[in-house]
Design a protein around this nucleic acid. Structure first.
Length: 610
DNA sequence: GCCGTTTTCGGCCCGACTGTTTTCAGTCG
């Protein structure tokens, strides 16, 4: 199979999708797990904890409602920013003093008051007032492509449109083109946007996005780099951004050949749609590449922060470079590193560019060093042919050696999970004997660790007895059944497992399977707290179908000193490649090498187990 | 609504592109 090596030479760093393989792309409707969920988490039970997610949801909704009322865009942005701040906060707002809210960036007296109210009651007067003043279907119109707040406001006030059905009716009756500034094309565009919105979400997994990106890179007649959320390593991707040095006209021609639709095409960029996914390609030159990559990679919030930094230094930052506001002189940069240096910052790795405090730390030169792929010494979750995997023990040891690993944890399922041919105590003992034999005779540089992925039963007990678990090199414990338990029951169940003496790692903690199964109801704050108290690790499951934990929780765990164990959950040799996704997730969670169990030497790892 | 070494009011990131326009508003990333 042919491989593309995407090296971000300009940034002097390896691209997160380096080494990805070429596969035929396919349409992936409805991938995003949130597609079926409400946009704003509802506070609908007096027994439910008011989580940061709920508070963030209320603030975000207020922002959207203000927007359709035509409010000051900066006020709208203030609510949106505050929502993001709360969403990514490392500690629960419910446990904070009201004064603490105001100390948070972008949160002043008014929003602090709102947060206090939401923590107390689940809502706030501002949300109630706005909801009463707004047709409930109106904010959803903001999600239609090509439709922004001004347009929604005009549809509502001038056409009486209160929701997506109304809008479609109005468009079909040609009432849209009657509005000043609207014409036939705009009306057609609205109908297409309505049709697109009615389909399931078109966010896709990181791996699907990589395949689509490869298709695009293959046809571009010149050097090209992936930027945007794919380069930042987000678990789900909404669109694909590419920067290229190839000639604009030839690139446009090549893209039109594989695109379903050309959204717009100009001298500086071309946007197309393939399999419902938007692809934006920006044309650049080698001398400008640094600022262009930086601009197209950053999240919106990160870019805004960076431009604020530039302004405070008397400069203006755009995708072409830095302009001195006094002299008007434009400085260009070939690499991202040079732009950061000119702004007085250290380079911020792409995975961190989310406006979560990294800009201030980079300005102070105190940005934490995040883990690198080459620091990983082994894989801590893998299945052999002894349960539901395809690999023999010999094969695992050889694959591990070929990857330069020092160790691999063989963690087959325990017997309670019948469908996975789980091992009972006797068969596990046989397997562990076979593992020791392989280690002794094969001569592989990669040591196999004799472990197990033991089921956490409905009441928190484990599916294998202590005497069996204590003989294991490492024990992963995971929930594989009873996913529908109430939050408190599930939380107690997982914490009970964490407190078991011989459990070392909690596997795929939230149990989500992207697009197929939502995360279990789990109070992750309590789980992280229990892991910290008991010195246990939480898994970063690197399987693309799981990506569990989410980066928010990885960062929370890291902040509380909990070790993270990256496991591919591999069932076949090629699955071991997924370790790079685990590293990306760890980096997005601000983990350094010291936070990751798999960076330890074998000796240190066994010492950690105790 | 937030913020401040330009500090209690005035500014808030910046540019590409489209459609409907005769010079720009709106949307998007």
């Amino acid at each position: 199979m042919m491989c593309l090596l995407l090296i971000s030479l300009a940034a002097g760093e390896c691209h997160p999708i380096a080494g990805m393989t070429i596969c035929p792309a396919r349409s992936i409707p409805g991938f995003f797990e949130g597609a079926a969920l409400h946009k704003y988490p509802a506070y609908d039970s007096p027994y439910m904890d008011v989580t940061n997610q709920v508070v963030a949801g209320v603030l975000a909704e207020i922002g959207d409602l203000l927007e359709v009322h035509g409010e000051n865009p900066f006020k709208v942005r203030a609510y949106a920013r505050a929502a993001e701040t709360v969403r990514h906060l490392g500690r629960p707002v419910a446990g904070m003093d009201d004064d603490d809210f105001e100390a948070l960036p972008g949160i002043g007296k008014v929003i602090a008051g709102n947060i206090a109210e939401i923590v107390e009651t689940g809502t706030c007067q501002e949300q109630v007032r706005l909801r009463e003043a707004t047709p409930p279907g109106l904010p959803a119109l903001l999600n239609l492509r090509g439709v922004g707040p001004k347009t929604v406001h005009r549809f509502w006030k001038e056409l009486g449109v209160t929701g997506i059905d109304d809008l479609e009716t109005a468009a079909r009756a040609h009432r849209i083109r009657g509005l000043r500034g609207f014409g036939e094309k705009k009306e057609d565009e609205i109908l297409r946007a309505v049709a697109a919105a009615r389909k399931v979400s078109t966010r896709m997994s990181m791996t699907e996005a990589e395949r689509l990106a490869e298709r695009v890179l293959l046809v571009i007649p010149g050097e090209a780099w992936v930027a945007g959320s794919l380069r930042r390593g987000r678990s789900t991707i909404g669109d694909i951004d590419v920067v290229t040095l190839a000639p604009a006209a030839e690139t446009a021609l090549a893209l039109e050949g594989i695109a379903d639709e050309v959204i717009d095409a100009g001298e500086k960029k071309i946007s197309v749609r393939i399999d419902e996914i938007r692809i934006d390609v920006r044309f650049s030159t080698s001398g400008d590449l640094g600022a262009m990559l930086l601009y197209l990679t950053g999240s919106k919030g990160f870019n805004i922060r960076l431009r604020e930094v530039a302004r405070s230094g008397g400069m203006r930052l755009n995708e072409y470079g830095l302009t001195d506001q006094t002299t008007g002189e434009l400085r260009s940069f070939g690499t991202e590193d040079e732009v950061f240096t000119a702004l007085g910052m250290v380079l911020v790795p792409p995975e961190l560019r989310e406006d979560r405090g990294e800009v201030d730390l980079a300005l102070a030169g105190h940005l934490p060093r995040v883990v690198e792929a080459q620091e990983i010494r082994g894989d801590l979750h893998l299945h052999s042919e002894w349960s539901d995997g395809s690999m023999s023990l010999d094969e695992i040891a050889l694959v591990g050696e070929s990857r330069g690993y020092e160790y691999i944890l063989v963690s087959d399922h325990s017997a309670s999970l019948g469908i996975a041919h789980g091992l009972d105590a006797d068969r596990l003992a046989c397997q562990h004997q076979a593992i020791r034999e392989v280690n002794r005779t094969l001569g592989s540089g990669c040591t196999l660790l004799a472990g197990v992925e033991v089921d956490i039963l409905a009441d928190g007990r484990l599916a294998l007895p202590d005497r069996v678990l204590q003989d294991c090199d490492l024990v992963v414990a995971s929930v594989h059944s009873g996913f529908g338990q109430a939050e408190d029951v599930m939380t107690r169940r997982v914490i009970t497992a964490i407190e078991k003496e011989h459990v070392d790692i909690i596997g795929h903690p939230t149990g989500r399977v992207i697009s197929r199964r939502p995360p279990v109801a789990l109070d992750m704050g309590r789980v992280i707290g229990a892991a910290a108290e008991n010195g246990k690790a939480l898994e970063i499951n690197a399987s693309p179908g799981r990506f569990d934990l989410d980066d928010i929780y990885i960062k929370q765990a890291q902040e509380r000193g909990v070790k993270l164990a990256i496991g591919t959950d591999a069932h076949a040799p090629s699955d071991l490649d997924h370790i790079r996704h685990g590293v990306t997730l760890a980096r997005r969670g601000w983990c350094g090498a010291g936070d990751i169990l798999n960076t330890m030497s074998l000796v240190d790892l066994m010492e950690w187990r105790g």
